[in-house]
């Protein structure tokens, strides 16, 4: 949706709820996207750089879940 069409919530409650919902959606997209990338053979450094976070951060957040999912992970570099 083009920015000029995006509504601006007038009620602070709506605006704050939108922030919470966007964070939740971003988390859900991140989980799916990181899993997708690692299944496709990406390494932690590439995923971290693409997300704009440190390797340690992305590893800490996703490694346990992906190992449990049976994803073959490349060694941390």
């Amino acid at each position: 949706m083009p920015a000029q069409d995006a509504p601006v919530p007038q009620d602070p409650a709506d605006a704050l709820a939108a922030v919470a919902a966007l964070r939740r959606l971003a988390d859900q997209i991140e989980d799916a996207a990181v899993e997708q990338a690692m299944r496709a053979g990406w390494g932690w450094p590439e995923v971290a750089e693409a997300l704009g976070v440190t390797r340690q951060a992305v590893h800490k957040k996703h490694a346990k879940r992906l190992i449990a999912a049976g994803v073959t992970l490349r060694r941390r570099q």
Partner: peptide
């Protein structure tokens, strides 16, 4: 509904995202 409604308030449609459902670690 609340999730969708809150996203719609800033012009985001949940239906636009069709990513595969990520694996959830049952021990988490």
């Amino acid at each position: 509904r609340e999730f969708e409604h809150s996203l719609n308030a800033v012009g985001v449609s949940l239906a636009a995202y069709d990513l595969p459902k990520p694996f959830r670690d049952p021990t988490d």
